[in-house]
Design a protein around this nucleic acid. Structure first.
Length: 300
RNA sequence: GGGGAGAUACCAAAGUGGCCAACUGGGGCAGACUGUAAAUCUGCUGUCGUAUGACUUCGUAGGUUCGAAUCCUGCUCUCCCCA
């Protein structure tokens, strides 16, 4: 019998954490978190990491395992995940992965191609080029280095262009050449379950959860993150809005309102990401028994 | 009771005779995205819709005009000031 990676995914605030614990307990296994912000040990209330009590119930991995000052990407996650899953499958037939970071989940599923690491100096160089000379200049560079990709990318999205340029320059060959859609083979089965609910219900949950975070001291946590605000890890809903408030750009109420709105928009983007994934079996978070049945039927 | 201001699409708010289906902002909807992804980027938001297209809108009922969200009159409602 093949091992199975059970994935429980869903938009922010829908209730993955509790459900994941129940599922993990049921199958007597451990949880691999796949939440790109719960990785950071300096943040907790704004990222809604599982509570100490929850962490005690089931062993969690990749919760606050790195620092906001570390560089971490989907690729790093893929490597860490590969190593960990190999270890866990030695003692478990099933492992549960839960989270809401679509790209990272895809990475764990082996859906990203093997692409060399980028030379930090090269990254620096193109970032500067973009800042100093603008979008048009990096577009131009891309049209020379990788005309194929130039035709396909969203030319208004500097991040896409920058990434391609970095790869072109560090590897000496066009970025598009690495995008073979071959992915990586995994030696375990993947079973995806998704959580979804009525939009309005979700949005109300999100709004309420933000209020709870505020009560738990999100403002203080954000203030303590001020020294790290330039790190990418702090370009995060719940923190960036408070930074604006601390800077005097907006009122505290406005910051809270923006945190709610940006969380809603984030949830929307997550749902768009998964909308085209035919492998996901969808459930309402209250359907715990149905989810357990679904998983049990599949792995037996 | 007297005087003044105003009613515009989901909300806020421009528009004050034709270039208006109506600026802009918010909210919302839809989408893209193979390595910083809670990031980054895009489209739509009166209805029908392939539409440079048709139809119905700017409190309400009339009127003026070739033509009105814009001008005039009545009505309804809201707000402010004086009593």
């Amino acid at each position: 019998m093949k091992n199975t990676l059970i994935i429980l995914l869903g938009p922010t605030g829908i209730g993955k954490t509790d459900l994941a614990i129940d599922i993990a307990l049921y199958f007597n296994t451990e949880i691999i978190s796949c939440d790109s912000r719960q990785f950071y040990r300096e943040m907790s209330t704004g990222t809604a990491v599982p509570s100490p009590g929850q962490l005690k119930k089931v062993k969690h991995h990749f919760i606050q395992h790195i620092s906001v000052e570390d560089y971490y990407s989907a690729s790093n996650f893929e490597q860490d995940f590969t190593e960990l899953s190999r270890r866990l499958f030695r003692h478990h037939n099933t492992v549960l992965m839960t989270g809401g970071s679509g790209l990272y989940i895809d990475a764990a599923c082996g859906r990203i191609d093997n692409i060399p690491d980028v030379d930090p100096g090269v990254r620096e160089k193109y970032n500067r080029k973009y800042e100093e000379e603008g979008l048009e200049s990096i577009r131009q560079a891309l049209s020379v280095l990788d005309p194929d990709y130039y035709r396909k990318v969203d030319l208004r999205n500097h991040k896409r262009i920058l990434r391609a340029l970095e790869i072109c320059e560090t590897t000496g060959s066009p970025y598009s050449r690495f995008l073979q859609r071959k992915g990586r083979n995994r030696d375990f089965k993947i079973l995806k379950t998704g959580l979804r609910m009525d939009r309005q219900e979700l949005y109300e949950r999100i709004n309420r959860r933000v209020d709870i975070m505020i009560d738990k001291g999100l403002e203080e946590e954000a203030r303590s993150m001020l020294p790290y605000r330039h790190n990418n890890a702090l370009n995060t809903v719940g923190y960036k809005e408070f930074f604006m408030y601390f800077d005097g750009q907006i009122s505290r109420d406005k910051a809270i309102e923006l945190i709610k709105r940006n969380s809603r928009r984030y949830a929307k983007r997550q749902m768009t990401w998964w909308a085209k994934d035919r492998d996901i079996e969808w459930f309402h978070p209250s359907q715990k028994d149905d989810i357990l049945d679904y998983i049990r039927n599949d792995i037996l």
